[in-house]
Amino acid sequence: MTADPLAETREKPTAAPPKRPRADAQRNRERLAEVAALEFAEHGIETSLEEIARKAGVGIGTLYRHFPSREHLVEVVYRREVEALSAAADELAARHPSDVALSEWMQRFVDYIAAKRGMANSLKLLSASNSELFSSSWGMISRALSRLLDAARAEGLIREDIDVSDVFHALSGIYAAPASPDWRDRSRRLVSLLMDGLRAGARRGRP
């Protein structure tokens, strides 16, 4: 009988390539973006990339493999912050009464503002070359807030004569406030005051 030259190949199928390196790379990328968001919010856009890499537990070469430039890192961090803020609306709505979900989301908005303020100079440059990034991001955030406001209004837990533009107009004052060591704490207190105003005159109110 003539031996089948392909038999050995069929009997020993090629093993699938290991997935660990890809998973490790994705974890490194996510960790770098997470650390960068915190560093930008705390120290501004000029924060050292070497320090970001160190705090993420990787080398500077790994950072540059994922983010070839500071501007690329800023764009990824900004997208990540927008997506997280948008997703938080549904997560909070699933766990809390509608007015509490709205209040918690606006407190998270303070963290988003802090990161955005830290990246302000680079975001201005990006806006000139990637206007779609900002229009789509604004749409995601606006829709998230609309869902929370609509739910709280429908349940009579906030006043009915408030819309998305009113709330964003109030929150914009937080973004424009001068930087100071207590900026974040002060901003959180202002959000609490804003929420008290939204609850005033509601049909039901919270006992």
Rank of each mutant, 00 (worst) to 15 (best):
G44P: 05
V74C: 06
A41V: 00
V76F: 05
P21L: 03
P18L: 12
R10N: 09
G61N: 12
V77M: 07
G59L: 04
E46K: 10
M106R: 07
V58S: 04
R10D: 11
A101L: 04
A15M: 09
D99H: 12
H96S: 11
P17V: 13
D90A: 14
F40I: 01
A36K: 03
R20L: 15
K55H: 12
V82L: 03
A88F: 00
R54P: 01
Q107S: 11
A84E: 13
T9L: 15
S98I: 05
A93K: 07
E83C: 00
V76M: 08
R29G: 03
V76K: 07
A36G: 02
G61H: 06
P18G: 13
S69V: 02
I52P: 07
V76W: 01
I60N: 11
A16N: 01
L32P: 01
P68D: 07
R22K: 12
H72T: 15
A25Y: 01
L85R: 12
A101D: 07
F67P: 03
A15G: 08
V35K: 02
D90T: 10
G61C: 00
F109N: 10
R54F: 07
G59H: 07
V110K: 06
T47C: 11
A37K: 02
G44M: 05
A84T: 09
A87F: 02
E71Q: 14
A16L: 15
R70N: 06
A23I: 04
G59N: 07
K55D: 14
Y64G: 02
R29H: 07
V100G: 01
E42D: 14
V58R: 01
D111E: 12
Y64Q: 03
D111S: 13
A101S: 09
A37V: 05
R20V: 13
G44K: 02
R70F: 08
A94R: 10
H66M: 04
V74L: 13
H72V: 15
D111C: 04
D24A: 14
N28E: 15
R65L: 07
E51V: 14
R54W: 09
R79Q: 14
S86A: 15
L73S: 06
P17T: 12
Q107L: 12
V35D: 06
F40H: 02
V110T: 08
L49H: 03
P21A: 08
V76N: 00
V76C: 06
L63W: 00
V110Y: 01
V82Y: 07
R20F: 15
K55V: 04
A93N: 10
T9H: 11
E8D: 13
A84N: 09
R80Y: 01
A36S: 08
T14P: 00
A89F: 05
N28D: 10
D24Y: 08
E104G: 05
V74H: 06
